[in-house]
């Protein structure tokens, strides 16, 4: 496992490290031989992880997994509403499908 991933897994699992001070984090990073630039991005404790993503060459990922519809779907794209269910449901229920 690359040392950075191993370190992050440890950070997410260890109650003391998860809420450690910047000094304690720096010490743990030094011991785990994480690259200095990556380590600095971790120590910054920011709300954003953009610096780490940039260093690892990672692009932002897509988040959406839900379609709030029902909207008219383009031809060839099938929706969630099964025809049978659609006929049975009242308009209010259809909105929730």
């Amino acid at each position: 496992m690359p040392s950075i991933i191993k370190f992050l897994e440890r950070l997410g699992t260890d109650a003391q490290l998860r809420h450690a001070s910047q000094e304690e984090l720096a010490k743990a990073l030094e011991e785990s031989q994480v690259d200095a630039a990556l380590g600095a991005a971790i120590i910054a404790h920011s709300t954003s992880a953009d610096e780490l993503y940039a260093l690892l060459g990672l692009r932002p990922m897509f988040h959406t997994q839900e379609n709030p519809g029902p909207w008219p779907l383009p031809p060839g794209v099938a929706g969630d509403v099964v025809e049978k269910e659609k006929q049975k449901a009242s308009p209010a229920e259809q909105a929730a499908l």
Binding site: M1, L8, Y53, L58, R59
Partner: peptide, 13 residues
């Protein structure tokens, strides 16, 4: 289907 590239790297391990 995760939302963070680092999480995906972790999963790959």
């Amino acid at each position: 289907a995760v939302s963070d590239g680092v999480v995906e790297l972790w999963l790959k391990e």
